[in-house]
Design a binder for these strands. Structure first.
Lengths: 343, 343
DNA sequence: TTGAAAGCGCTAACAG
DNA sequence: CTGTTAGCGCTTTCAA
């Protein structure tokens, strides 16, 4: 499987390899007649340039490394699409690695990408708190790094994330504006984002004078294939004993959909009897009916911005870092409505 | 951002680059003391070998190119996970490209991967009928190619696919066994898999003596974020004029969910009034309620097998090809039931 | 057990 | 405008 090289083309066209290189890259003047000869030879030989060799030479790579926990959660798939939409148009390709939610694996991914000489790395939902942060500092000094939705900040790394504190508040205010007071908080375990949201929730509810710690439900795994069903079961168990609850705030859309399913099983009408807020606005949230009211996490923008931040970093030879904060916006759909008891 | 090279290590350890290479690769004997010196230098300098240079030299690559239409349908994400589970353990990385359902783009992806010198390409759901098949032959002669769920077969390409003909038949038989006769076929455009499902459908319905070309609905984009809604709208339009239709066979689960939504909007009870079959068994199919009856496409196995077939091809220097056929199995859930008019 | 050196395919001075 | 040549970082003969 020996492939044709620039030398073969040069021989066939009876010119030097430099000339071939010139017509391929179009970066230096070449006489029209010569160019034609070369182009012909390229076509005859079905020559395709070897980018690896080119990039070894130019000391420049056009591959972006991506680190995701998995693609199973469409949140990540949507972010990757956002990255792709930016990077493809700038001539970059995507090298994809999986952490499987394992910090050790995450380190390996980084090393792997470094060896492959990618021009930069985008890490979606890094496990910063579980990996020695000096590791990230060290990495950041070697290669442009952009983190998406990371909670720890290091000076040499660029970040894009949503302000989920404000987003949570907006969501809760929406429910309150509809007259809800007994709002149940549904979360998963082991993610800073749940902690943040819970903090905001507790403070908010206390200020309203209707905080009740029993209204916090933890469904354990928050991003697994089982999250929907886990949530549904928990709520089917919980709700019958808590008739006063009129709304659910769910930390992500999987939980939101689980809540919808639970209420259906309990023969509750949505949103007449009970209101449900999701979070993320993954496609699932509008695939189901009633369509889920949720907070948009701007996945496409997240990915797109991450890619553009990475380009900035590459352009500045990794000398600059920047942070971009996006705002979650309320996506009003069919699962929230006026509180029954206040009608 | 100059990174440390093998030369730096050699200098620091006061040995030749060849020796460093030997300890890095562990493929030739090196005296213990020397090895220790080198290892120390590597650690001090935080040396990471440049795989691009290595592979340029060894004429061997350890990257697998993947071509997907998009990641919006989790079908693809799940297949990619299957590929990943095999390839990572064999030391291969994944270069991901998107066709956006565009045959031109698909060709570009192939070229892009070829230029990047990947060791082989896995194409998930190729668009074979719209691309000049000589293009694929030509590609196959240059680089190991594995197609997943492809329609056309070329001798130099390896294939894994589900026998969707039999699967489609099983699905249709399931509907017929419930008494359905006027079964509507819902497909998208531009994918081989729709074509052969339609073939089977037509033949099947003709044999039953109830084929009606008007019962074939094309929702256009079959794998986009809009597929669910597109399908729902089409069916909401279609169904009121076709009261005789009692069941839908949908070419994938996105369409299946769209059909469920449509029937709900029309106040039809599922499965009492109407039955719906999906196809794929993506997670979405059991996230919604009623949970979708569907055909399992073994996405993980599909991906895993594709990767192993690719390894075979690489090992044989692209001299051998093989085909693996998997069977779709019926996943009985809540959206199919006895035909009303036959009750 | 080690080093010197050729070369993987390509680009970019430099010289003509 | 075009050819010659020196590498990019690495592996691997071939000699020592």
């Amino acid at each position: 499987m020996k492939s044709t090289t620039i030398i073969d083309v040069a021989k066939k066209a009876q010119v030097s390899v430099a000339t071939v290189s010139r017509v391929v890259n179009g970066n230096y003047p070449v006489k029209e007649a010569t160019k034609k000869k070369v182009l012909e030879a390229i076509k005859d030989l079905e020559y395709i340039p070897n980018i690896q060799a080119r990039e070894l030479n130019t000391q420049h790579s056009s591959i972006i490394g991506i680190i995701v926990p998995s693609l199973f959660n469409t949140f990540f798939a949507e972010v990757v699409s956002g990255i792709e939409s930016f990077s493809t148009s700038s001539g970059y390709s995507l090298l994809l690695t999986y952490t499987k939610d394992d910090p050790i694996c995450e380190k390996e991914c980084m090393n792997e990408l470094l060896m492959r000489n990618v021009s930069g790395i985008i890490n979606i939902s890094p496990n910063t708190e579980r990996v020695d942060s000096s590791f990230f500092d060290q990495m950041a000094s070697r290669i442009p790094l952009v983190f998406i939705n990371s909670y720890i900040k290091r000076p040499a790394i660029s970040y894009v994330y949503n302000d989920e504190r404000i987003g949570t508040k907006i969501a809760l205010e929406h429910l309150v504006s509809l007259g809800h007071q007994n709002i149940c908080f549904v979360r998963g375990e082991r993610s800073d984002s749940y902690e943040f949201k819970e903090d905001v929730y507790i403070e908010f509810m206390k200020k309203m004078g209707c905080y009740n710690p029993e209204n916090i439900i933890n469904v354990s795994a928050g991003n697994s294939i089982d999250t929907v069903e886990l949530t549904a079961k928990k709520i089917v168990e919980f709700l019958p004993n808590r008739k006063d609850v009129t709304a659910f705030f769910c930390c992500n859309d999987l939980m939101g959909v689980g809540a919808v399913n639970a209420c259906r099983r309990l023969n509750l009408k949505i949103p007449e009897d009970i209101s449900i807020m999701g979070y993320d606005n993954v496609s699932l949230s509008h695939f189901i009916e009633p369509k889920l009211t949720t907070m948009d996490q701007n996945m496409m923008t997240l990915g797109w911005t991450a890619a553009s931040l990475l380009m900035e970093k590459i352009a500045s030879d990794n000398k600059t870092s920047r942070q971009v904060v996006l705002q979650n916006t309320l996506v009003l759909r069919d699962t929230t409505g006026p509180c029954k008891t206040n009608k």
